[in-house]
Nucleic acid binder design. Structure first.
Length: 105
DNA sequence: GAGATGACGGGCT
DNA sequence: AAGCCCGCCATCT
């Protein structure tokens, strides 16, 4: 079980700083936390988030500018909807323009 | 303490 | 070009 102050909490805090209409990649989050190769762990952290969380998990995507949440097709769709509502536009490939939307911390 | 897990990433086939 | 494979790292069983 996760302790109160851990890597996960750091991920949540960082993700919470992403403004609406912007996104960040798992790898980017990991680098910012001082663990350049811990992208997987970042994904794991968001994996444990409850539904009604205040953490904007939808703004975290993979390095290709796509939603990686392939473990849950339902939430994958939700994530896309949420981002679109924030002004993020997806192309025909379900991808978004990282150069345009990636948030610089 | 050792092995398995996972919302990833990058390289190779 | 699309897909498979291996490596990373903190957490879980």
């Amino acid at each position: 079980m996760a302790t109160e102050n851990n890597f996960f909490q750091q991920v949540y805090t960082l993700v919470s700083r992403i403004p609406a209409g912007k996104v960040a990649t798992y790898g980017q989050i990991a680098i910012l936390l001082g663990h350049p190769r811990a992208a997987r762990t970042v994904g794991w952290a968001l994996h444990g988030l409850p539904h009604g969380t205040d953490v904007p998990w939808q703004r975290v995507i993979n390095s290709k500018g796509r939603i990686s949440n392939y473990a849950s097709a339902l939430q994958l769709n939700l994530q896309k909807i949420l981002l679109e509502q924030e002004g993020v536009q997806f192309d025909d490939d379900d991808g978004l323009d990282l150069v345009k939307y990636q948030h610089k911390f």
